[in-house]
Amino acid sequence: MDIAVCIKRVPLLGSAIVLTADNMAIDTSKVGFGLSPHEECAVEAAVKLVEENGGSVTLINIGHIDGEEQIREQMAIGADRAILIDTNGAEPDPQAAATALADAISSDDTNFDLVLMGSESADYGGSQTGIRVAHKLGLPVVTSVKGLKIDSGIATCERAVGSTREVYTVPLPAVITVKDGLNIPRYASVPGRMKARKKPVDIKQVSFAGSRITTKQLVVPVQEAKGATNLGTGAEAADALVEVMKQIGVLS
């Protein structure tokens, strides 16, 4: 089974978002980068499927050229090769990203059986790139999948809705967007990291038209400091906590 996994490099925010002086971007000068948990689960699922069935895992990343860092990290857990679509620092919108990803997938020498993506990116959260890729490739798409089994060319997908799970089946090839919780992504091993250094990354360039959704400014919603009341420690705090619970009506 040959699987393409689309991944996006995003800043790893700590406990606060800091913007650049013009309020047009997140200040990333002091933060690291990584992937959304959704995409980490997508890579884990792909690697596992290939371990069980044979085949290959190709990572596809569109964005900054430094995305090679995230590519190597995911190669260390078992992805075989990657396509890095360099946007020359520009940020593609979902339409541009989907066009470039679909082009990369359809023009590749590998005929992919499955395209895995995150259900929504960590930063933009547009919930649409996977669907757009599927339309461009003429493939069916199942979104927000939290359970995935593949048998005889049919993918059985589960999606959490409240306290139940909806079941979808789809014949491959297909696009499936997945959610955190699909699996527990493994950690990279030292030999995995060594191997990752030598795996091939094809770099493509892409340029695209401007987005029809243009940001005027970003705003971090003001969160009024609540000024937490300190209940102290130990037995005294335990008594106080019981009292608070009575006051707010969760304990009668």
Partner: peptide
Amino acid sequence: GFADYMVVDNVHTFLPLFIEKL
């Protein structure tokens, strides 16, 4: 910064005390 109330303590020692009182 998001809390209305805080208990500055170790969960492993504080929670057993609290559960008893609760």
